[in-house]
Amino acid sequence: MPWDLDNDRPIYLQLMERIQHDIISGVYKPGDKIPSVRDLALDAAVNPNTMQKALSELERSGLVYSQRTSGRFITEDETMLKKMKTELAQQHIRDFFEQMHQLGFSDDETLEMMQKTLKGEKQ
């Protein structure tokens, strides 16, 4: 099943995000070996060089490390994984507030609505 990718953003960035997401959601666990570039590229239905670039970037960020002969692995550094998770959450929150601004709600109004929603009240 080809990965679902947006049309307007660089492909390698989206591949990085997808793999990060797979790490957070537990598809890959800390220390797991990840599939070869070729297999991942086939699975995603993307160019292998693009997949290679995504993995190199993940390696540069430290999230993935490679062992010369045996392939690439997910980091076992729990602090780093937690940091990535937090950063992603913050990104989602920023995006959400941005959308609410576009709908004309201030931060305070948004917060109030969120609390009401959590309490199960109707608007």
């Binding site: 049309n7 307007d8 953003r9 660089p10 492909i11 390698y12 693009t50």
Partner: peptide, 15 residues
């Protein structure tokens, strides 16, 4: 490259 186009123009090659 496809990703250069997407970065520079913010759109797909098709668009």
């Amino acid at each position: 490259s496809v990703d250069e186009i997407r970065t520079d123009y913010g759109k797909s090659v098709d668009t």
